[in-house]
Design a binder for these strands. Sequence first.
DNA 1: ATAACAAATGCACTTCCATTGCATTGGTTT
DNA 2: AAACCAATGCAATGGAAGTGCATTTGTTAT
Lengths: 137, 137
Amino acid sequence: METIEQVLESKNIRITAMRMLIYKFLVEKEVAVTLSDIENAFEKADRTTLYRTIKTFEEKDIVHQIDDGTGITKYALCEKDCNCEIETDLHLHFHCTNCNKTICLTENKIPKITVPDGFISENVNLVVKGICDKCSG
Amino acid sequence: METIEQVLESKNIRITAMRMLIYKFLVEKEVAVTLSDIENAFEKADRTTLYRTIKTFEEKDIVHQIDDGTGITKYALCEKDCNCEIETDLHLHFHCTNCNKTICLTENKIPKITVPDGFISENVNLVVKGICDKCSG
DNA sequence: ATAACAAATGCACTTCCATTGCATTGGTTT
DNA sequence: AAACCAATGCAATGGAAGTGCATTTGTTAT
């Protein structure tokens, strides 16, 4: 089991108290979070710091950004060995319109999408909206 | 060939000069447009009017909203017989990262997506990012 | 035709999220 | 300990979405 320090170190991210707290927060959340979610969890911290921390995590492929159609960007930890930038590794996201949570369905890979001649596909974003398992029960 | 008046009438939308102009603008554009695009095309008109006109068109299923991941909502005319609200009728959208245009690929239907037990899928949004035919040539 | 009503438009304003500039703090290295 | 660079905090900006209200325009009924 890797420690948080080891994760950050392996990605060449300087270890700070703030970053460790935010990372821990993301691990504990099983759903994608907005910047405001993080802000509410760390009221003492400045919004900019949280924003830039997430941006750093994103650049270093620790978190990936999710646009679930609510208009607010969400973030979630990447899988251990995920290569978010590789098309074949893309998973889909589920947005529950009832509880407003967005979940990475990492087991559900996106099927091969064909595009017309002349188009070059580099990236696919797929969001399914509906009712999640917790809300449908 | 239906006239613009006939289209609006058939959808129970009151005919006004502004609405006809905006509809015509959407027809002529072959790509999805932002509110700002419309705003720039009609500098004399008020933004709110354009905003509400698009909302009206949306409610009456004349246009559909597209979230292509740029963070800015885009709109495009529905196909003649499209039922945007029906899941099986969903097509995918292509966003060109070069020219920033977003195109409806109405011929490319979204494949059946499976979600885990307990999840209920109501809607699917699929955006492919890459290079469009005009830019790749 | 005109009065009465409803819908459409225009203006002003607000809110929310994303983002940036700059000053300050804190940690590393020599 | 000095110098340096990265991280943080504060303040402010910008852009898009959305709302309230007054005004104009179009429709309907008398």
